[in-house]
Structure formats: C-alpha cells, structure tokens
Design a protein around this nucleic acid. Structure first.
Lengths: 336, 336
DNA sequence: TTGTACGCGTTATCAT
DNA sequence: ATGATAACGCGTACAA
C-alpha cells in the first residue's frame, strides 16, 4: 500500500469518498460506526487527508507566516512562542522567515506569500523606509497582516507595539536621577520605527531635566558586530559619556564587551540601561538594567488579532492597535 | 481583478494556460517574448501560481519541517539559522514546530507531517524513550528525516551530532585539573540521548583520575525552572560539591542564580562548566566556561543531508552520521 | 513554439 | 446516512 488517498481508501472499505471525507471533518452527517471504522483503518495505515488537496478546495492553509528580523534574540524567540501558542490552539502551523534586517528578503518573502501559501502574516518589519507597495498587494488578496514591535506607519494593518516613548523617557530619566550628565543614545537606525520613537523619549527626558541635547551623543550603529564594537569603543574613548541608553540589546552587549576590555567600571564610570528581553539579564556582569518588553504577550496579542481578522474574513475588520507596557528593571548596571 | 489564476491570465493575454505555466517554470520550450510578456503582466498584477495547486500536481511542497524542543535558546536558534540558510538557497521554506520537550506534541506533529505537508523533516527529538513507530511511518511515505543533536538511536535516519562523550570527558577533566574533588553532574534526563552520553564522559573522566563515582552527585533536574532552583539550592547546601558540570545550559543559569543568592563565590568555592551555545557567555558574572557546540554548522549539515536525500528521492540513500566537534571555552567560572 | 485535455486529492452540492 | 460528481488551480503528455 504505497500511496493511500481517500479514493483508494474508499475502495478498500467499500464506501464512497464523500463518506470518508466526512469522517475526517467531524461531520455529523455520518453514522458513528462507519466513522469509527474509517478512522480506525486510516490510523492503522497512517493515512491523513492530503493537506494541499484540501487547501486547493477550500482555500484555507491553516498556516501562519511569521516574519522576523532575527531568531537568536530572546525578544523574537519569545514572541514566536506566543504566536505559536495561539496558533497551536487553533490548529494552525507556522511558516517562519528570517529577514536578517535585509529589506529585499522581506519583500521577496511577502511577495511569495501572495499566492495563498499562508492564511495570514505576522511580522516585525525590517524597518527600511522604502516603498511599501508590496505590502498593499496582500490586502488585495485579502490576506490579513499584523505588525508587532517594528511597524510601518503608512501601512494600514493591525499592530501590537509597546509604550516605547514612555519607556524610553523613563529609562533616560532614571539615568539622570542616578547622576548621569552625558547620556549617549545607541541606535541602529534613528530615523525609523522604534529607533525614532525611543529616541524621542530620550530627547524629551533630557529636556525635562534641563540637559542640552547633544547630537554627538546619538550613536548610529550598524548590523555588524565588529563595526559596532569599534564605534562604541571610540565613543567611550573620545566622547566619554557617563551613561548609555541602548535602544537595542545587541548594542548593550557590545558596550559591555568594550567596557570589559577597556576596564571601564560599570556602574561607577558608566551606567547602562538597555531595551532587552534577555531572560538572564540578572546574571550578566554587572546585572543589566533593562527595559523589558512583554515579548510573549505581544506574540499572543498579535496572533489573536490575526485570528480575529481571519475569522471575520470578507467582512470589514477595523484595524486595531494594541499598545502593551514595557517594564523597567533597574539593576546594577545603572547603579541599582 | 479579484481572483487571478493562470486561466484568467490566459484569457486576458490570449494564450493558453500551458504557456503561462511554462513561463513560470523556466521552461525552455517557450518564446522569450511571450514569456516576458506573461511575467511582466503577472508582476504588474501581483500574480503568482498557487502553491497548493502546484504541490497537488507534483508532490513537491518546497517546505521543510523543523522540529525543536525550544526556540528561546541560542543553540536551537542558531541551528535554525543554519537550516534556513541552506533552505533559502534551495528555494525552500520552513515550517517550524516547538515541542517544549513534550513527547505527545512531537508525535502529533510528526503524524501531521505524514500527509505530505513538508518534503522533509529536520528534528531534535524530545528525547523520551518511548515507542518510536510514528517515526517509521514517515519512511513508508518516503519523507526523509534528519536528526540533529538529540537523536533516537533506534531510528534509521541520517544524523548530525557532536562529540558529546569526548567533550564531556574533556570538560570534566578540566574541572579535575583545576582541583575539583566533588564534581556534580547536572542533567535533565540521565537515561536518554545526550544526557546519557555526556554522563558517560563525566564518569570516565572521574575514573581516569581515580575519583570515585558518587551517585549523589548526579543531579536529575526537571523542565521547571523553579523546581530546578530548589533542587540545585539543596544540592549546594547539603552535598556541597566543589565543581559543577552541567549538561544543559539552563541548569547552569539556575546554578548561577542560586550562587548569587547564597553568596557562593565562583570560581573560588565552586567551579562551573556547562554545555551552552550562548553567545554572550563571556559577559556573564562570572564569564561562563562552556562546551560550545557548532550549532549553526550543525544546522547547515543537517539541512545539507536532507537535501541530499531529497534530491535522490526514489533511490536508496545511505544514512550518514556526521559528528562535529564541540569546543571547550575555559573562562572564569572554572578558574580560567 | 503553442494549445488541448486530463488528473493530482479533496470537499461541497445535490441526489438518493 | 450515503453516494455521484463537479470544481479547486496547476503542470504535463500529447498533439499540432
């Protein structure tokens, strides 16, 4: 028995294919005995209806596409966990795609998804401020999308973000309270998405406390670890900030490395707070003060929003924007 | 133009569906001009052949299933990166599934994959020593499988692992060289897969150096963080080992936490080495000595093996078992 | 080089 | 409660 289909099954059992189909779809229009007979036989022979044939019939792939910049990052890993949790309950599976923050990869994958491969998409965008028309094509095909954390403002879909502005304000203010006068802001791209909003919180906190904003203290970093290391090293040597507010976990790690190598004492010589969802932040040397986003909950919410849209397909579903709260954990790196 | 198919496209362009199909499949049997005309029109209207219909036709889903115990773990995250890297080059996509080390989830997902949803499967097994017949069903359907890191010995598929025995031996020996006399072995399940092999390396290293094996020093932990914390705390209080060899990263983190809380000085009072692919291990307090597996390479190899099998479908492909080398990084937690 | 026509495996509709 | 059948969108053998 090489290749079982409901057709061959039907022949073997002397029933019609429709009845077989009904057995698998929990139809009530079927005798319990025949159903059991079918299911038993199927289980014994390891048969399951072909997913692609079903999908071709009813245009439901039971698949969610998840697009994230990276996976080796507790924030995204936890968010994926949240998404998967919800998806699993709904009997959905997850197609994962990693963009490495490369815009072209994002575009290519989104275009690919245009063909109905997934019923919906949850994504944290690569963040480039380019032409976003490839996103609009999805709307035409009625494929719902939910952004989380990093969003495109000009695309009208549901979104799940955190109170980045307030959290950044609070983090910066905390550094000021501990006595910092020259706080550097580490960012990968200050002109887009989260980099921009978080910077505004930083800027406004400075202003509130009468500290002049200094453009030299805004440190634009890259995706490359080694380059970041040199950039930060140079900053610590030349500009000598007494505080660091990092909008991205990775840059805080680089800072810790540099400090290790340069023997800069944290928190005495330099205080650090960073956005980070790293679970072992308390185990770092020194324990890292973090603005921690509720990554897992964000995943849950994003998936929930997506299923809301999915279940009301055809109807006009109002976009929602859910804003969750981050939490500031003050640890030793900022004098806690 | 709500719903485009190659049929509607054919009508619009006044060509037949076969020609359209040819245009998309890079057939040479087609005039370059017609091809361009078709592709241009398609791109303009955002058309892509329906993936499910194609798959139904030629039984190629261009999808790989990846099954891992967890995602919030640099080892698995990096391995997934490696897998994705290869898959991407081959034009494949990844269906991700997380088992949380729950055997039933693994079985359920594997059974689901039986229906041709994915062309192949790469997995790190949940590790329970149960009946593995659900795995055999895949072989019948000609769906190739590759195990990585955690494998079932009794299932005949290609495997990618690391030299766990030697690495464990070396790590334990290192602890002995630093003066440890009472080395505890932390493990989640000492009777299966990696837990077992790594323990053997530990046991043999003790023996080589004339240290009596003490069953009380083998600490069986759980999946639950809080329980692990209490277990380890109790061990440090009562059994008072002077060295810890942790077969799993998570347990090393728990140990660090306990030591923090109990004011146990590492490495003076206690030395630690752990299996871990954590990239920021050097930034921990103290920097953690690790046995680091080449996670990314393992992903690459596993995916490569899978494609080998995939590309020789039908033929008998000999199973391969690739063993990569882990690297011992001696850091301060073990006196480095 | 292009077109015709069938079938991939399933499910919904309509009968019975 | 069950069966016959058409249709989902595509690719390919075959014919032209």
């Amino acid at each position: 028995m090489d290749h079982i289909t409901i057709k061959t099954l039907a022949k073997k059992l002397g029933i019609s294919t429709s009845t077989i189909s009904r057995a698998f779809n929990g139809s009530t229009d079927i005798n319990k005995d025949t159903r059991d007979r079918i299911l038993d036989y199927a289980k014994k022979h390891n048969f399951l209806p072909n997913h692609y044939a079903s999908n071709l019939r009813d245009k439901k792939s039971k698949t969610l596409a998840v697009i994230v910049p990276e996976i080796v990052n507790d924030f995204f890993a936890q968010a994926i966990n949240g998404i998967e949790e919800v998806a699993r309950k709904k009997g959905f599976y997850i197609l994962l795609y990693r963009t490495d923050d490369v815009f072209e990869k994002e575009v290519s994958f989104v275009n690919y998804l245009n063909n109905g491969k997934a019923d919906g998409i949850i994504m944290s965008v690569s963040g480039e401020a380019n032409d976003h028309n490839y996103m609009r094509a999805l709307a035409q095909k009625n494929i719902p999308v939910v952004f989380f954390d990093r969003v495109y403002e000009d695309i009208d879909v549901s979104k799940v973000t955190t109170n980045d502005y307030e959290a950044s304000f609070e983090a910066t203010e905390h550094l000021i309270h501990t006595g910092c006068k020259r706080i550097a802001y580490l960012v990968v791209n200050k002109s887009i998405s989260i980099g921009k909003v978080r910077m505004q919180g930083y800027v406004d906190a400075l202003e509130k406390h009468g500290i002049a904003f200094d453009d030299d203290l805004v440190i634009d970093c890259s995706q490359d670890e080694k380059i970041n290391y040199s950039i930060i090293k140079q900053v610590l040597e030349d500009i000598k900030p007494d505080g660091i507010f990092s909008s991205v976990e990775r840059l805080a790690f680089a800072t810790l490395s540099v400090c290790n190598d340069m023997n800069i004492a944290i928190p005495n010589d330099l205080k650090i707070v960073s956005f980070s969802s790293l679970q072992i932040a308390p185990l770092l040397n020194p324990p890292l003060s973090t603005v921690t986003q509720p990554a897992y909950e964000m995943g849950i919410k994003a998936a929930t929003l997506l299923f809301d849209a999915l279940e009301k397909k055809g109807q006009v579903v109002p976009r929602k924007h859910i804003v969750l709260k981050s939490k500031l954990f003050i640890r030793k790196s900022s004098g806690g």
